[in-house]
Amino acid sequence: MVNGADVLDGTPSARKGAWLAVDTSTPMGSVAVWRDGLVFEQAFSILRAHSELVLPAIDRALTVSGVAPGEVESFVLGSGPGSFTGVRIAASLAKGWSMARGTALYAYSSLLAVAAGCGVEGPVCALFDARRGEVYGACYDLADGREPVELLAPGAWSLPRLMDELMKREIEPVFVGEGAKAYRDDIRRRMAGARVLPDHLAVPRAASLLWLRHVAADSGKVRRVEQLEPMYVREWKVAEEGGRR
């Protein structure tokens, strides 16, 4: 469990509406609340189910921040990719909240949340372990105080194919995320001198989603909440599961 408070870029001012961010795409879930320039963030492990922990975590984050649920004016969602069940949990919460209160909804890739949270300027490649020998990966060009530029859209890749694509596009990024951690040696073998950021930066943090809401409000705004779906990236192959009954 990680608790922390920080100052989000922005001018603390008279009390106004708060922002709430949630990500449950990976085994480490995260919620964060922003108000008056202050961020409270809480993380929780999937060792107990996200569905059991996420609303108590939101409740604690709002309470500590002195925010009533009705004062949340923006709900910021980490929309995936990641665990199919995990991304649906956060998306369902976001939809229920937004439909109930008419709260503005913003959604960003959880890969972007990891990239944005690593504190690096320049090209960053965020990777999650997608299992079955693949990673979920995306690349962004990051700079302080401005909206990230997407260099490679989120997708499911085998590592060799992803590395070939990066080299073809002449992108030499810094690597971050649990997928980068899992394939660290492979990455370094295929891209000499590649920098893989340490494990503590591998998690998509809800506080990073709040920062994205700050610098990239327009591109993250969900205009039709009822049409929002998680970012699965990977299509489901029915043959793998078959009819249940």
């Binding site: 609303l55 649920p69 229920g96 439909m99 709260t103």
Partner: peptide, 21 residues
């Protein structure tokens, strides 16, 4: 029921109820 399906309704309802108090 099917856990993936159950979780959609469950989290939708929990968030809506909590947001409205």
């Amino acid at each position: 029921g099917l856990i993936g399906s159950l979780l959609v309704g469950l989290n939708w309802v929990k968030a809506a109820a909590y947001a409205l108090g």
